[in-house]
Design a protein around this nucleic acid. Structure first.
Lengths: 155, 155
DNA sequence: TTGATTCCCATATTTTCCCATGTTATACCA
DNA sequence: TGGTATAACATGGGAAAATATGGGAATCAA
């Protein structure tokens, strides 16, 4: 088993007429360690698609069992939203996945898509929207510099 | 297993037409202990490239998962910024990495680059820029002597 | 049958790998 | 100590492999 499973980098790929996109090869290399498919769902907080290994959702399920009441309304809502929306997307021999209409619409993706690494997961954006979002984040982060231990991001 | 993993020294290397640079052999020796690739990203605070072992970012990912909520906006922003920018750079049999256009542009590097050790990380600078930066740092540190416990660094 | 999905092949481009060469550093020997 | 042999390293260029992407045939479902 691999030590690290970090989705990284930002990659722009085309979406063809059939709705197919190449999963960046770095991502594929990670996924292949344990599966031949990724799980995608509409982001709850942004106009983009979110993707991860099934393991992560499994961890989320466990965390929720531990932290929330079994009959909690919040847990009900969240699990409905995420697990109701999530779906496995296998990739073919050339490494492409076929995103559903629902996902593409939510992210406003038509003929090209940007994959953005997020560590244990990644996001898929409409290129223009991602450009704006990145600027927003950069200005946000510089305004209220959040402090983090480890500091790998700081110079 | 090796006792120390510190990136040290300052090394000037050429960047060829393909964007390839030799990783200083001392650095390679450190990396080879656990991997055959380094992770690089644009420094958030200076016009240079930063590099480290993937372990460091993995630790950061774990720290964030532990300290911040799964649905936290801050966590979202930070992971996008950090992991969206970072990327693995494997080195070939002769010890070279191929820096992306994005990184070279951010650091203003064209035909040569300076590797500067930073302990667990290192930086890659445009030679002229580094010269200025080093002077700035030296005068800065001399002006307001920072205090550090331990004192092993003082003479 | 229509539309969609999967599988397969073709191809351009990018990236990786490998070999060759000059240069520097280190080891060795007289 | 000086000089030479040897090894390690940096660097250049070309060949080989991997990747992204387009299109078509086969398969499946409504």
């Amino acid at each position: 088993m691999r030590k690290t499973f970090l989705f990284m980098d930002t990659v722009l790929n085309k979406v063809d007429a059939k709705g197919r996109v190449s999963l960046p090869s770095d991502y594929r290399a990670i996924v292949k360690e344990s599966a031949s498919e990724i799980v995608c769902y509409r982001s709850l907080t942004a106009p983009c698609i979110e993707g991860c290994l099934e393991d992560l959702l499994d961890k989320l399920a466990t965390d929720m069992e531990d932290s929330l009441d079994f009959f909690s309304q919040t847990q009900d809502d969240l699990t409905n939203l995420i697990f109701g929306d999530a779906k496995r997307y296998p990739f073919d021999s050339t490494g492409r996945i076929m995103l559903s209409e629902k996902l593409l619409k939510h992210a406003g993706i038509t003929d090209s898509a940007v994959f953005v690494g997020k560590g244990r997961k990644f996001q898929i954006w409409n290129p223009q929207n991602w450009e704006k979002e990145e600027q927003r984040i950069r200005s946000e982060v510089f305004k209220n510099r959040p402090s983090l231990k480890g500091g790998a991001h700081e110079s």
